[in-house]
Amino acid sequence: MSESVIKAPRPRVKSKTRLISNIAVITVLSVFAFCQIFPFWLQLVQAVRPQSYLPDGRMHLLPESLNLKNFADALKLADLGTGYVNSAIAAGAYTALSLIIVLVCGYVLGKKSFPGKNIIFICLMATMMIPGEVLMVPNYMLVIRLGMFNKLGALIFPGLVNIFGIFLVKQFMNTIPDVMLEAAEIDGASELRRLARIVLPLSMPIIGTYFILTFIAIWNDYLWPMIVLRTYEKFTLQLKIMTFSPMFADSRDQVLRAAGLMITLAPVIAVYLIFQRQFIESVSVTGIK
């Protein structure tokens, strides 16, 4: 993947036409990139305003002051700190636990031969067609029956067997040569040892992909948390920001909401800036977000 990203068909046209076309291309791309960022930028400007500002009906492209206290206030009023912790627990635990299951199942379905393998695989894949929304009602009832209602466990345990992840890993296993595993088996390495010493190190790219995509998906989800979490101290970050309404009934509300939004967005953007390349490659490998 990385190779194909680097090497590319390079247009070999006369340099002047090429310069003009390059400028045109850059202009179009820049306009789109700018339009995407602009509404977020306006919210950032909003977020650092003095809380006492009076709307004057004009658009302010640059912040007139840098009132960082807004962030502290929003963090406290909306209790975003708890939201951070809850989201991190749910997304972290789900991603880590489901990763183990996905790896083991993908390995067994990809590298072993046993009767019924194809039937099991096809049955698992068929459930990918069922939209989660169909299962919303019964899963809600199951969560209540199992005593997981209003607990973070409800975000972690019901969906632990991630079928799409199993599919991803199984496809990836095809790239690991059988001879390596056979050689290790002949040398007397046990099944678990082979998994830990050969399969795991070789699977690092797919583990990274799975981790990034799953963590972000759980971190950003609001629907299932909204169904199974009831009390405010259990809310994830997304629910906190969704229900955040400062009740000053003046311009402070807008400023604090904007600050809250920026706090919610910041970690995702920060992680993106660091792992930007892996993100893009993950998506191009899997074709989904």
Binding site: S21, N22, Q36, N220, D221, Q238, V268
Partner: peptide, 26 residues
């Protein structure tokens, strides 16, 4: 258009891709 660029592909790719990470709520 990206493929047509001779330089700076990665920057534009990153600039155009990030909205994917914005959650439904935000």
């Amino acid at each position: 258009l990206l493929v047509r660029l001779s330089k700076g592909r990665r920057i534009f790719l990153a600039l155009l891709f990030w909205p994917t990470l914005v959650s439904a709520v935000v």
